[in-house]
Each structure stands twice: as C-alpha cells, then as structure tokens.
Design a protein around this nucleic acid. Structure first.
Length: 798
RNA sequence: GGGCUCAUAGUCUAGUGGCAAAACCGCUCGUUUACACCGAGCAGUCCGCGGUUCGAUCCCGCGUGAGCCCACCA
C-alpha cells in the first residue's frame, strides 16, 4: 500500500486522477468529431423527413461575442436533438460580404477603401478573409456548434455571388427592381446609401438656436428655431400652419435666409406644428425625410448643399468644403457676430445614425436600386403569419416592422466590396442592360456591353448589392451545396431578435417574391445577453468575452448556462451560473465513475427487475417523454431543468444511495437488476443531455457505452424512446413517496445532528409502511433502519 | 406617442387555476467503499388594485416600475 502524504492534502486533491479535465476532453472530442466527420452532410441520406436548418452565417467582423455563443448554443440544442431524432441538414456559412467586412479590413489593414481601386481593395479583402476566417470559425467549433463545416458557403464566394445576381436579374425581369434618383438615406462616413433597417437612434447634445430670418421688403423679423443652421443655404421654403393666426399676413410673401442672400417662399402646410419652436418650419433639401416629401408636394426645386462625403458644396458660399459639423460651428459663430440669433439653448435630442459606424445620416439624392416592398406589406405580413414563431410574440415584432415601412428596400451600396450589380446603363437611350444568367457571377466593370438599340458602349454599374440582398438567400445558397436536395420551406430559421427587421424580413421577402413560399416553417428567436440588466456594448465597456469563459469553464458549462433561459428571453450573465454548470458536469462525471466502478466485466443483459429498479426506470420513461416534448416545442430550458432535477435528485441523491447496499453487498439477480438499471438509466440520461452538453456526454459514451451500442458517436445515436408502461403515474407517485419518506428521515437525522449512517428504528403511518414493503430491504439499508414499525412517523436513534 | 416583453428568496432564474422550485450567497449540522466541485437543513405579502372562480402568483382589466423595438426629434 502506498503511503499517503498527509501534510500535502491540497496538492493531492489537485492531482485527483479521476477529475474531469474539460480542456483536454473538449479539445479531444472536437478533434474526434472533425476527424470522423460526425456532422458532415451525407447527401444520399437527405429526405423529406430531414430537419433542415437555415443556419445564421456569422459576420466575419471580429470575434464571436457572448451573444453569439448564447444564441448559437440554443439553436444547436435543437439541431442536435433533431439529428438524433430524424437527421438534419445543418449547413455552415460565413457572411463576409459588404460593409461590415469592408470596415473590418479598413481597420485591421489601416486602409481606406475609397482611396484604393476597386479591384485592389477586393483583392485585399479576399486575401484577408482567407487569413482570418479559419480562426474566426474556430470559436464556433470550440463551442460545439454541430454544423457541417466541411461544406460551407461564404456570401462572397462565386456561388453566392452567382445566386445573388441571379435573384437580382429575376426580380428585375419581374419588374420588382427599379433604379431611381431619390433623396435617400446616406451615410457620409461610409459614403453610401443605406436602408431604413440600418438606422439606429442615438442621443446627441445639440444647440437649439432661434434665428432671425427677415420678411422681404418689410424687413420684419421672422424667427425660426433649428438645430441645423448649416442647412441654411439649402433652405428652399418656410412653412407655417394655415391655422396659425400669428403668421396669417405673411403667407405668400418671401423670407430672407440669414447670412445667405436667398429669398424663399412662405407657404402654409399642415406639417408645421404651431406649438413647436416658433411655429415656423424651415424646409431644406434635405434635412429629413419630411423635407423630401414637402419639397415634392409643393413642387419646389431643391438646392442640394451636401456632397456625398459630408462636405458642403458651392451653394454654401464661403462655407464650401467644410464638413457638416465644422460648417455648423462657423455658421453659428457668424450668426452670432451679426446678431442673428435671438435665443439659444443646449438640448439633447435623438438622431438617426448608421448602425455600422454611428455617424449621423443625411438625405442626399442619388441614383439607387430598390426592390419594391411598400405595395406588398399586406402579403408580407401574411407570409409571416404562415410561419410558426417561437416564441409566438416575436411574430408581432415582424408585423410591426413591416407595417412601419416607409421606403422600398434600398439594395445598392456605393462601396467596393460586395456582390456587383449585374447591370449596364446606356446613357444615350436610357436603356438598362442586364447580364445573362450564363455569365454569372459577373463584374460589369470587367466586361463591356453594348446597348442593343444604339450599339454604343454602355456604362457599367459601379455599385454593389447590400449584403442583406445576398444573405436573404441563405436557404437557396445552402441548398445549392447539396444539389438542391432540400428546398424551401426549411424546417427552421434560428436567429436573434435584433435582426428580425433585416435578415428575417428580407429572407421572407425574397422567398415570397421568387417562389411565393415562406422560407421556413418555423423560426426560433433568441434573446440577448445582458450584464447587470444592461445591454452589453463595447462603448459601455461591459463586455464579457466567450473565449475567456470557455477557457475557465468549458463549452459544456457555457452551453448549460445558455440553456438556462427560455427561448426569446434575455439572460443576465452571471458567473455563478457557469459555476453551477461546471459543478453539474463534475457531478455527472463522478456519478459515472460510481456506476462503472460497479460494472466491471458487466455486459448488459435483461434480468427480472427489483421493484425499486422498476420504479426508477418508469420515472426515467416519464423523463424521456417530457424531454422529447420539450425539445419538440423548442423548450430546451425546460428540458435542461427537468433532466438536471431527475439526474441530481432522483438518480444521484436517492436512487444511487438506495441501491448502494445491493450493489456492494448482494449478488445474483438482485445485484444484476441494480447493475442493469444503473447502466441503462445512465445511458439514457447522457443521451437526453447530449444536445445540451455534447462534450462530456460524448466522452462518457466513448469510454463506456460505445462498445455495446456500436454507433460511432453519441450524437448520431437514436434518440431514446419512452417505453409504454402501465400505471406510470402510480409508479411515479410510489417512487416520489419513497424519496419523500427518505428525505424526512434525513431531516430528522440532521435535526438530531446525527450522521446519515446513524442506525434507527423507524415508525411509519400504515399507508407509507405499505409503500415501503415493496422495497423493504433497499429502504432499510439506505435509512439504516434496524426495524420499521407502524404508527405515527417517528425516528428513534439506537 | 404606438407596439411587445418582463415583474417570484439577498442575487439570478424555473414554474403552476388548489402544498411555490433550483442555483449562487449566508448561517446550522453531517460525512470518508462516486463526489468537500459532497450530503441534510434554514429564506418569499409570487409589484399594487379590481374582476372571473369554490379557489388566482398563474386567466382578464387597470395602475406602477423596468427593458426592447418603432415613430417623433423646427
């Protein structure tokens, strides 16, 4: 016998040979899955019954963040369950097209896309993506996301570009795409048109100044309040409300714009609010969308002062060339010098900014491409209603968004990196020439086209498609990887709720416009991760990195945490939840050690079961039934908590304790019945748990169960089936009663400050005593009762 | 201003038309043939007010508070 080093107990604990080393195990298991291609799609096995998932392709624009790890875990629970149940198509892709990727490249390579030629920049993007994508994807693999990485798409690869351009051409031919000059939402930082869905609110401090306009001829003051004095040179009219008595006598006259030698008409318009500011509204081209509407309505000629790069043009006179903010400051200074400001106050107001860069947006008339959606709101809502939303209330968010649409879908971007718009324009005939399908993917800048009418060389379209114009085709792109063996509607679209208005909406739109189908039958919408109740964001500095969490707790623990909140609910990140997960994993590991310690040389075989064992198996059957139903309903959190409860309390705390005596001290059928039950119930438990904690369950499976089960991986084993048993409810009540009495006995021992092993004489009510009779030996052993009497409940210590 | 969601132990979350549950924390004990990363025990006006009901934490209405989305933002 080895001598125990008594003094150094702590070190001994660290070296516990049976401890579960999650870092080693998880990395080993991950490699095993990759090597054995456990999650690779076998095209020949895809069929009607295959559960197909329109996996979100994460944007290659940094690292996996905690929100990703949360929502991808949740979708992976469902994917893994379905894989065991019926087989899945769970493709993988990355979204590396368009502005987010461009911005990433600009940042990491310290370049400006607009300063480079298009082809140079694209080359740099593709090269950089090649470098960074494998590392980027690695985080998802470490998390145990079981998508098919071997057969992945990128939204900028040739195939995706081809499909995206094909979609553009089809919609153009259907008359659903149009090209129009229009004051559109413009980001002066990114220098591109953007879509309504890319707007975000931001609070900004601002100066609210009341300016002295003059009435022409009379030279009377006309006071107008504004936060945007730099738009004075763009002022084309002033509005007063027709009901506003104060200004009745000036309607129809002209107003003189301060600092600028411009006279503009004074018009009546309902949109002028009597209560706001001075009641006089200046109309600029363009301050906001309502300016654009108003100018249109009154047929006023706009005077554009902003260049696409956010500087002022020649109409701004001496302010030409200044950036918006600079001009604002200078104009305010000059106004003050000439005593043209009557009042000024500091306010904070909410402005629209571009979600990618936080820059305040402007309205600049440019020629852009649009997909018609405004005339189809009703149909698009109807399409949304055909989909099962999990949770249901997320459907409402979709409907609200569609109802609130104000613009057609703006799909062109004045950028370099993206899917090119496959069009040419003959400036003579005003003819649009569209690429042919066999030419796709195509870059019009690299290919000369002649106008079919006048035969002159047409101008290639320089703009690219918005990244959503491509990612809205992820079902079709994924299908093309598997010879279209799976087509829409897919079974499931998982995603988070922030992109209902973009990804979900645009995908529904495209599938409707192209095929008049919904893209999926179900969608599961994940919530967000918060920290102390607040949304995590880099600017607040309250970001938790999943990579750090993975290092200290492991994937299974992180996933266990992600399974803790119900679908659609936000979850507050708390480290203690990771601790809980890790403890649970340890518990499983230790319980497994116990089971197999007692199953040496055991081969599973049917035996006549002892009553206690039968009760446990019945209870387990109920667990299988419930867990299955929960997973069917996307209620992974209920599945988690029920499995957890069963495993820890029914199985480990109670059953294992009860059965110990029989395992240690008996032989023959009594022992075999216990062994059979331990083996089978643990096997079932780890299978039920496999979708949520794929690593430890695989490790246990490989180590102990594989040799009898013969399937390569637990994750492609068949999902456990609940056996039909008679009187299940009765049996479960019986089981619970036994546990409840046991618990009361333990309570008494605790109260008396006695050991659990203290021997007792137990007195039970008649009914309870009868219940115990069936499992008498086991029960006496676990409670250390020497005798069980009938009467009022009592525990006597010997 | 409109829509949606949430409100349960000190904290964070489950859950249910009829004894309200787990985890973390704290306290009191126990324990060494799986596990001290253990076992047993101790915690709540289930936001307020009305209604439906034999019975409401749960269903309905109103209110309060928080979050998210949208709109407004001279």
């Amino acid at each position: 016998m080895a001598q125990k080093p008594v003094q150094d107990k702590s070190k001994e604990k660290e070296k516990n040979p049976n401890a579960y080393e999650f870092i080693e195990v998880e990395s080993k298991i991950k490699n095993f899955w990759e090597k054995e291609k456990i999650y690779s799609t076998d095209i020949s096995k895809l069929n009607k019954n295959t559960y197909s998932i329109d996996t979100p392709p994460p944007t290659v624009s940094g690292k996996m963040h905690i929100g990703h790890s949360f929502s991808y875990s949740q979708q992976d629970f469902i994917a893994r369950y379905r894989r065991m149940k019926q087989g899945v198509f769970y493709p993988w892709g990355t979204d590396d097209n368009g502005l987010p990727t461009e911005r990433l490249i600009e940042k990491t390579k310290n370049v400006k896309s607009k300063d480079m030629t298009r082809s140079e920049f694209i080359k740099l993007c593709l090269k950089t993506l090649k470098e960074i994508t494998p590392d980027f994807v690695e985080d998802w693999k470490k998390l145990g996301i079981s998508a098919d990485y071997d057969n992945a798409y990128s939204t900028i690869d040739d195939n995706s570009r081809k499909l995206s351009q094909k979609s553009f051409i089809e919609l153009f031919k259907k008359g659903l795409v149009y090209n129009k000059e229009f004051p559109t939402i413009w980001c002066p930082e990114c220098q591109t048109a953007i879509a309504q869905a890319e707007l975000e609110d931001k609070e900004h401090p601002s100066l609210f100044s009341t300016l002295r306009f003059k009435i022409a001829k009379t030279n009377d003051d006309l006071l107008i309040a504004t936060t945007r004095p730099e738009l004075l040179p763009a002022c084309v009219a002033v509005f007063v409300n027709p009901k506003d008595k104060r200004y009745k006598n000036i309607v129809g006259k002209k107003a003189k714009v301060p600092l600028f030698d411009i006279e503009v008409p004074i018009l009546t318009d309902e949109s002028a609010d009597i209560e706001k500011g001075t009641g006089v509204l200046m109309i600029c081209s363009y301050g906001d969308r309502f300016d654009a509407d108003a100018i249109n309505r009154h047929k006023i000629t706009p005077r554009i002062v902003l260049n696409p790069n956010g500087t002022l043009n020649q109409h701004a006179g001496k302010y030409q060339g200044m950036k918006i903010k600079e001009a604002r400051k200078q104009i305010l200074f000059d106004l003050k010098e000439e005593d043209l400001i009557t009042e000024q106050k500091q306010i904070t107001h909410v402005v629209n900014v571009h979600d990618k860069c936080g820059t305040e947006i402007e309205f600049i008339p440019t020629k852009q491409w649009f997909i018609k959606v405004l005339d189809k709101k009703k149909e698009l809502i109807k399409q949304g209603q055909k989909i099962n939303w999990h949770p249901e209330f997320m459907k409402k968010r979709y409907e609200n968004w569609v109802e609130g649409l104000e613009w057609d879908w703006s799909i062109s971007r004045d950028r370099h990196f993206g899917v090119s718009i496959p069009a040419w324009h003959c400036e003579k005939c005003n003819e649009i020439i569209i690429a042919e399908e066999k030419e796709l993917p195509i870059d019009p800048m690299q290919k000369e086209k002649k106008c079919p009418r006048c035969k002159s060389v047409a101008k290639p379209e320089e703009k690219v498609l918005d990244t959503w114009a491509t990612s809205s085709l992820t079902p079709q792109i994924a299908s093309s990887l598997i010879k279209n063996k799976i087509t829409i509607p897919y079974s499931l679209r998982p995603q988070a709720h922030d992109i209902i208005r973009t990804w979900a909406f645009y995908t529904i739109t495209k599938s409707y416009l192209h095929e008049n189908k919904t893209p999926w039958n179900n969608t599961m919408i994940s919530g967000f991760v918060t920290l102390g109740g607040e949304k995590m964001s880099k600017s607040k500095g309250n970001v938790i990195q999943p990579q750090t969490v993975l290092e200290s707790y492991g994937s299974d623990a992180l996933r266990f945490w992600a399974a803790g909140s119900k679908l659609g609910e936000d979850l507050d990140y708390q480290e203690k939840d990771l601790v809980t997960g890790k403890k649970f994993i340890t518990k499983i590991w230790n319980a497994t050690n116990f089971v197999f310690m007692n199953l040496e040389k055991y081969t599973p075989k049917k035996v006549k079961l002892e009553k206690m064992d039968e009760l446990l198996i019945n209870k387990l059957n109920s667990l299988v039934k419930n867990t299955t139903e929960y997973f069917e309903d996307y209620e992974y959190s209920k599945a988690r908590s029920e499995i957890e409860k069963f495993f820890w309390h029914d199985f480990a705390d109670n059953y294992v304790e009860i059965v110990k005596n029989r395992v240690y001290n008996s032989s023959g059928q009594k022992k075999e019945s216990a062994q059979f039950t331990l083996y089978n119930s643990l096997n079932t438990i780890i299978k039920l748990l496999a979708p949520i904690m794929p690593f430890i369950t695989e490790e246990i499976y490989q180590k102990y169960f594989k040799k009898n089960e013969k399937v390569k991986s637990i994750h492609i084993c068949e999902w456990p089936q609940a056996e039909k048993t008679k009187d299940k409810e009765e049996s479960n009540k019986h089981f619970d009663l036994i546990c409840e009495i046991l618990s009361r006995v333990r309570q008494e021992k605790t109260k008396a400050q006695k050991s659990m092993k203290a021997e007792i004489i137990l007195t039970l009510e008649k009914k309870e005593k009868e219940a115990i009779e069936y499992v008498l030996e086991d029960f006496k052993a676990v409670t250390c009762s020497t005798e069980i009497k009938e009467g009022k409940f009592r525990v006597e210590f010997i």
